[in-house]
């Protein structure tokens, strides 16, 4: 399967990247090679197989519906961000 420049730009957008021209070119080749490799799965007959999404033996593990103390305080979490104001995280303008 051929991966075109517009495919790379679309995937870059889905991934929230802004790639340089050099990266677009390199990734195009890399991704084409990887997709070629994973496409060999076509050879495997999976007609009668149900999908497996997880291999954990248990389902619906419940816990008590109670409020437990948190491992980190609001102050500790806010201290991790670059800019804060009035107990809020500050970011550049949205629109």
């Amino acid at each position: 399967m051929e991966i075109k420049r517009e495919d790379i730009l679309h995937l870059s957008d889905l991934s929230d990247f802004s790639l340089s021209e050099e990266e677009i070119e390199k990734l195009g080749g890399d991704l084409e090679g990887i997709i070629k490799y994973i496409s060999q799965l076509d050879e495997l007959n999976t007609d009668n197989a149900e999908p497996t999404y997880q291999v954990f033996e248990m389902e619906n593990v419940w816990r008590e519906d109670e409020i437990l103390p948190q491992d980190a305080t609001r102050e500790q979490l806010l201290a991790l961000t670059k800019e804060e104001k009035d107990n809020q995280i500050k970011v550049p303008k949205v629109l």
Binding site: L11, S12, L14, F17, L19, K26, L27, L31, I35
Partner: peptide, 12 residues
């Protein structure tokens, strides 16, 4: 670069 490749393949 490897993180980017995997994220993009995942989205693909």
């Amino acid at each position: 670069p490897e993180n980017k490749r995997r994220i993009m393949i995942g989205n693909f």
